[in-house]
Design a protein around this nucleic acid. Sequence first.
DNA 1: CTGTTAGCGCATTCAC
DNA 2: GTGAATGCGCTAACAG
Lengths: 340, 340
Amino acid sequence: MSEAPVRPPTILDVAREAGVSKSTVSRVLDERLPTSHSPTAQRVREVAQRLGYRRDRFASALRRQQTRTVGVLVPRLTDTVMAMTFERIAAACARRDQFAIVATTDDDPATEREAIERLLDQRVDGLVLTTARLGDDVTSGLRERGVPVVLALRSDGTTPSAAGDDELGGYLATRHLVDLGHRRIALVAGPAYASSALGRRAGFRRALAEAGVEDVDHLVHESAFSMESGEEVARRVLAGTDRPTAVFAVNDNTAIGVLAAAQALGLSVPDDLSVVGYNDVPVSARLPQPLTTVRVPFDQIASAALELLDEARAQAPARDVTVAPTLIPRSTSGPVPTQV
Amino acid sequence: MSEAPVRPPTILDVAREAGVSKSTVSRVLDERLPTSHSPTAQRVREVAQRLGYRRDRFASALRRQQTRTVGVLVPRLTDTVMAMTFERIAAACARRDQFAIVATTDDDPATEREAIERLLDQRVDGLVLTTARLGDDVTSGLRERGVPVVLALRSDGTTPSAAGDDELGGYLATRHLVDLGHRRIALVAGPAYASSALGRRAGFRRALAEAGVEDVDHLVHESAFSMESGEEVARRVLAGTDRPTAVFAVNDNTAIGVLAAAQALGLSVPDDLSVVGYNDVPVSARLPQPLTTVRVPFDQIASAALELLDEARAQAPARDVTVAPTLIPRSTSGPVPTQV
DNA sequence: CTGTTAGCGCATTCAC
DNA sequence: GTGAATGCGCTAACAG
């Protein structure tokens, strides 16, 4: 009564059933070749379909020396931005008959090295890294080993990258606050090692400069990307003298931390304090105070990353793709409070 | 000046360098065999290490007919519970020299079937499903095809499963509210197709029965698992007559939706309304009102799922593993408001 | 367009 | 213990 260990049909089964050689089957089913419409080809496809034939990717990869698999490296999947990014990359891979696998670094360089080796052990055809830090380069070592690499969400000035236009996003967020009358706007700036954070910072400066605010250094507060960090920075900034009337946070996580700090300090949002985040993660729209934020087209970034990976494989010169974000005004931003 | 396309060393390179045959190398490096300490074995290992030899998983899998890869199916990774679960499964896989790959279903049966086929195309050695629905069985079809399958987070009464003790968790959450004096406690109950939701519902009933509340049917409100659903249900329930003094929500997502509804209706938490969630996702601790919730040991669930998968491969009889959750009291739960 | 042949890198016979 | 030979399932080089 044990189950039949039904071995899936091989190319040879299809060949026999269709009365051709296995080479013919292999060629007919080769997705890289132009589709033949000869009677033989049609019969082979029909038989393959009927037998439920699926190519063994392992045997195929062994021979082709490529796996149609892309490795994606993220700090952690519990960061919704990273989960979204990976999901979109996986979907884009599915559309091109590739498969995306993921590994996490937990923001730790040693773990990152291990994670990369684990991905390479899976013989991925290329890597998409979301973990780039300015001044640190894992990518050069990888390229020396002949591994195609691109960056997503961040750039490093060297490796091909697909990212949002962070300068524009930072400008839009800040400009929104400026338009509402705010001038004393604090920036929870994120870490200096991330190009994304620096870009948003530059946009912040541009918007304030346009509004005639030049002395902005004291408004910029470095932070991590976490909720904890946002709360901690906000507690400090909001408790000080000359309290800002608005905060632009480098991402939704830190913005949520800012909201928590505001609540703890008894500040009402947006009456006492306006807050703008970045990324538009799903929870942002569903907070007790729906968060004003900047939406990033993650699916465009995902598709672009895969195209850049193709180019990298073809030894094409490196280029960067940048896609424009959109401001999503919600209820955490409002007019500047009238002075008392 | 093009880069050297350095082919990674094969078992043959190691064999030559160590002066033995490739069979010997293969055996020495076979992790399933007991480690030999003969001089030859030590030399082979030393050479392999020195050359940076890594076994080609594709060639190996082709021969062994097993890939040391586990497929994980989740509804979506942007649901932090699912992201946590997958992360822990991936970590547990890493500890046992396996690799976890993931595919998403978006809660859609057709997408689910495709996702399963995509995972099977990757020749996974087994599947971990987090998407089980009572009364619907994907798993029987898979077992007929000889694919080892286990469930995580949910159970279906048939397939081996690793999950939290949802009845206990539901009891702990409700008991906490009962202890604070609440009796009119609404349950945002989740969907009836999920065993997890039903378990929490049962625990809810037990705690209320203990408190002498028997007529609970009108307190139970079915929902989805999303923030949207939680908000929608809460808007209805909190607007009605005989407003409950507390809400136990089937998960943190719906609890966040409840908080949003409470805010919109001008109810203060926990003064007018207590709210308890489930899962303790990271954002819960960082909400403007840190959420009282139930913590689930996801890493134990992950490890157990992989053990069950081993057992399934060995044709062992199906069993379920259940791990105990913990109540995490925070600031959304407080004493029942005094009647006015 | 088709079939024959060889081999990707490894694990497993089988003989020693 | 060790080595020679075979083949996992597929693709590619070659000849027709």
